[in-house]
Amino acid sequence: MDHLHNYLLHLADNALILGHRNSEWCGHGPVLEQDIALTNISLDLLGQARYFYQYAASRAGAGVTEDSLAYLRDTREFKNFLVLELPDSDWGFTVLRQYLFSQYQYLLYEKLVDASDQEIAAIAEKSLKEVAYHVRWSKEWVIRLGDGTTESRKKMIASWNILKDYVGEFFIASDEEKMLTESNMAVDPVTLREKWISLVNPVFEEATLEFRLQKWTQQGGRQGMHTEHLGYLLAEMQYMQRTYPGMEW
């Protein structure tokens, strides 16, 4: 498959995997209002994933559909960032991960709006408003919990101690990104790093959390080298299509 196909899958997988993780909170949120808020975000992400999968499927041709891309690929074929597949330990982890990713995704889509590929530009433009709200919602929670009670603060620090090993992966350019950036079909993520830090830093400050982005990072999601958690996630998410191939409802 070509570079653009891989890039589209990467964009779609990010949205799908985080959307699925968030959807696991459905019915388990701390309060009804936040349960609905996070479910809304899940649905936004699922919608974004669908657009990218549909575009990838239309280019790939015979036999490939948005469903086959989402439900019939195995772990090694998924190209999402590792951080998005990590299981949720608590609400603090969920909102902090959402904030760190949404802030990255916002900067990315903001650039993709000007991509030379019309489809990608259109999807980015539509998604940008959704992501702007994700940033606002999650940022609010990071500040509340970081600068909250002793307990909430402890959990936020513990969450960051896990997440800090993963978020650096956002800013490593993959082979296809390097190739596609030349024709302005993708964004070189390295160029987003400084801006991202300058936006995240004050939020951590307000949340009284210490923020330092280390050089070393976990990586490999783009190449299909995932954590053990993705297999369990896919087993649950893909169960229906794998057990009853081609089923519709």
Partner: peptide, 20 residues
């Protein structure tokens, strides 16, 4: 009606609960 810690959260919750 809904529950929220303060006005800012109340507006966000209202957006998520009542304007979907």
């Amino acid at each position: 009606s809904l529950h929220a810690a303060d006005a800012a959260m109340a507006i966000e919750n209202a957006r998520d609960v009542y304007t979907r």
